Amino acid sequence: MMEQKNNLSTFLTFKGNAEEAMNFYVSLFPNEAKIHSLVKFEEGQNGPLGKVLNGTFEIKGHSLMVMDMDPQYPPDFSWAMSLLILCNDEAQFDSLFSSLSNKGSVMMGPEAVPPMRKVAWITDQFGLTWQLVWS
């Protein structure tokens, strides 16, 4: 389990691709993200063997936990909840936009929404929605 910096964390439930998603998300933020732990379901545990029981990581200091749900209860993410990323600069915005929209779908942007220089709303390949902002 990761050391909590605070008592609030985002918990994401996946359809069997939690490890792939966690690795992808961490790869998007060089020097600003890291994986803390990864525990997989073992024989006899109530979950899909070899899939993620829990994985913890952080992005820009924000803690997230992932797990894979039993295939009989597949969850869906909704754009009603999204991860908001305040980008360090335009290069980071453009890189994140390119990576997250690849195999995903763009809901809005990129465009200027004063006073912000660029904003975008994207649902990635795993179904998770992100809001990118460069001020």
Results as ranks from 00 to 15, higher is better:
56 T>E: 14
5 K>G: 13
109 G>M: 01
127 G>C: 11
87 C>M: 03
17 N>K: 14
53 L>Q: 10
86 L>T: 00
79 W>P: 07
73 Y>N: 15
19 E>Q: 15
43 E>S: 01
95 S>K: 05
21 A>E: 12
45 Q>R: 07
20 E>L: 11
78 S>I: 11
54 N>I: 13
13 T>Q: 14
91 A>S: 10
43 E>T: 00
11 F>S: 04
85 I>N: 00
56 T>I: 10
47 G>D: 01
6 N>P: 01
94 D>T: 08
88 N>V: 08
59 I>Q: 09
19 E>Y: 06
90 E>N: 01
91 A>F: 01
47 G>S: 07
18 A>P: 07
125 Q>C: 07
9 S>M: 10
65 M>V: 13
14 F>D: 14
17 N>L: 05
101 S>V: 05
52 V>P: 02
99 S>K: 10
103 K>H: 12
102 N>G: 07
124 D>W: 06
106 V>R: 12
93 F>Q: 01
101 S>H: 03
47 G>K: 02
80 A>V: 12
1 M>W: 06
81 M>D: 14
35 I>P: 02
54 N>Q: 12
26 V>T: 11
98 S>T: 14
56 T>Q: 13
115 P>W: 09
101 S>N: 11
129 T>I: 14
57 F>N: 02
121 W>D: 06
45 Q>S: 00
100 L>D: 04
83 L>Y: 07
12 L>G: 03
112 A>Y: 08
38 L>C: 15
50 G>F: 03
127 G>W: 03
58 E>R: 03
101 S>K: 08
86 L>W: 04
60 K>W: 09
80 A>G: 13
129 T>N: 08
122 I>K: 04
129 T>C: 14
34 K>G: 05
57 F>W: 08
36 H>V: 09
109 G>R: 10
80 A>N: 13
104 G>T: 10
17 N>F: 04
132 L>D: 04
74 P>A: 09
96 L>N: 01
78 S>H: 02
113 V>G: 03
84 L>H: 12
118 K>N: 09
53 L>A: 13
6 N>L: 00
60 K>I: 13
131 Q>H: 03
2 M>V: 15
45 Q>D: 05
98 S>F: 02
21 A>K: 09
84 L>Y: 14
30 P>S: 11
95 S>T: 12
92 Q>C: 02
86 L>K: 02
20 E>V: 15
33 A>M: 04
90 E>K: 06
108 M>T: 13
15 K>Q: 15
92 Q>H: 00
100 L>R: 02
5 K>P: 00
20 E>G: 11
103 K>Y: 11
20 E>T: 15
84 L>N: 13
37 S>W: 03
72 Q>N: 15
10 T>H: 05
135 S>I: 08
88 N>I: 03
71 P>S: 11
24 F>L: 10
33 A>N: 09
50 G>V: 08
34 K>A: 11
127 G>P: 12
68 D>F: 08
105 S>K: 10
28 L>A: 04
60 K>A: 12
38 L>E: 02
26 V>K: 01
25 Y>G: 09
35 I>D: 02
122 I>S: 06
3 E>W: 02
93 F>P: 00
17 N>A: 14
39 V>G: 07
65 M>T: 10
85 I>A: 00
